[in-house]
Amino acid sequence: MGFSEHHSTGLSGEIIEQTGVHVEKCYQCGKCSAGCPLSDEMDYPPSLLLRMIQTGDKELEEKVLKSYTIWLCLSCEMCYQRCPMEIDIPTLCDYLRSRSIEKGHINPKAKNIVKFHKAFLNSIKNTGRLYELGMIANFKFSSMKLFQDADLAPAMISKGKLHFLPEKIKDTAQIKRIFNKTISKKVK
């Protein structure tokens, strides 16, 4: 009997269907949590997050989507590399993040992380490439972290590491269409 025939309902089943990741394969060896550089900053270390999904318990599933863990994941791929069952946890976290946004469950501690990602994508949507200076300004205002790294941006400018003007690609209209067909349908 294949793994897919177990626990194929609820969040666990949804994950298999959308990503092909089989959370039920996890036997809690803990290698992911041991190798994760941010385990100790997370509310649930990766192996616990997997266990919570495995239970199929609705309350725990909601806690997963409301967790800080899914936003702290750096996608450094250490857990996936070391997992004896080859469970692709970074892809799982990508999926859980998109579900968390759709359900309005973003963890309060992760608000600035989401704001940063949005500032980054807004910059690409307009010009096709990242305009670092514009993105930094956009993020600083939306997160109100105006004085964070206050000395870094001027130093970067003096070293010629930041453009004053955005670099635009030719077909920015196509980039906008790509956004409209993907993320703009879901994330406001």
Binding site: S75, D94, F120, L121, I124, G128, L130, K186
Partner: peptide
Amino acid sequence: NCCGATAAHNLNK
């Protein structure tokens, strides 16, 4: 164009 980096795969597959 930009590859989308962390921001894109964090928010939309």
